[in-house]
């Protein structure tokens, strides 16, 4: 082995140690991320192209191999659509009633204050514990750090944690390091929602610090409680399980995320909203 680890190889290994230490300190203490921004800016068009190709390939695959399944699905959706139309007609009457009552109570119609910026996901982090994606809009388009990201239906996707000129990195709600103050919509119980990876519930969310006497039901919707980062009433997920935590003095609930991360393509960055 003495011959194999030549002077040059030893120098490279020492350089690797030094580079790791220096870059860790520079990124951790000084926030030096210029190399990251440069490399990711250069890679952004390639990632966008690859993602577009993937979507095209998926489309062709679906057309070729899932045609019968799609036909079945269309029939099912048509039946569902007819039923939904019926329900919409009934709901329209109720909506008018709600509008009248809302106006009577002097409440504001929510979410008119949202300024949304649409973006496409161009890459997913393939690491084990981190759940991040890269989007094709960056600081040039108006994306800033710590902006909330949602789907077209107002379901929370995550938070912008890194911004480059033409890209941004979004940490999704599935990431255990992200904590969101939340409320069970039906009962009003408050708790903290975070990704379930660290506690073994991969792909799910975990709502902690619920009162020990809380009555949690399956399919209860959980929404954001409102904070400086997240506006109120954005859907996080719905309850699929609940129990007492390790301390025995608080309950937790397992949530199925509202956003379908498996098929997510387009997302919306909430660039501005009125804080209460």
């Amino acid at each position: 082995m003495k011959q194999i680890f030549s002077k040059r190889v030893r120098r490279v290994l020492i350089a690797a140690v030094l580079v790791t230490i220096v870059l860790s300190i520079a990124a951790g203490t000084l926030g030096f991320r210029l190399p990251d921004i440069t490399v990711q800016t250069v890679l952004q068009p390639l990632r966008s192209g690859a993602q577009a190709l993937t979507r095209q390939a998926e489309g062709i695959y679906s057309y070729l191999f899932r045609y019968e399944a799609l036909e079945e699905q269309v029939k099912m959706l048509e039946a569902e659509n007819a039923q939904l139309r019926e329900e919409v007609r009934a709901a329209a009457a109720l909506t008018r009633e709600v509008e009248r009552l809302t106006a009577a109570l002097g409440l504001k119609i929510q979410r008119e204050d949202f300024v949304l910026l649409d973006a496409y996901i161009i890459g997913w982090d393939s690491g084990d514990w981190s759940e991040e994606c890269t989007i094709n809009k960056g600081s040039v388009a108006g994306v800033q750090l710590n902006q909330c990201v949602v789907t077209a239906n107002g379901e929370v996707v995550g938070l912008v944690t890194e911004v480059g000129p033409n890209y941004a990195v979004v940490k999704t709600v599935l990431d255990s390091s992200l904590e969101i103050s939340a409320t069970v919509a039906t009962s009003g119980y408050n708790g903290m929602v975070q990704g379930g990876y660290a506690t073994g519930e991969e792909g799910y969310l975990r709502m902690n610090y619920l009162p020990s006497d809380a009555v949690i039901c399956n399919h209860d919707q959980v929404v954001t409680a409102g904070s400086t980062l997240y506006p109120r009433d954005l859907v996080l997920g719905s309850v699929v399980d609940a129990g007492f935590d390790e301390t025995g003095v608080a309950k937790y609930a397992i949530l199925e995320p509202a956003a379908d991360f498996g098929s997510l393509e387009q997302i919306f960055v909430l660039t501005s909203y009125a804080t209460e």
Binding site: A16, S24, V39, S126
Partner: peptide, 17 residues
Amino acid sequence: VFSGTGQDRYCILYLTL
């Protein structure tokens, strides 16, 4: 690591080694 795909800076050392 700079591309954001690597977990963190320590990947430089681990991968080279």
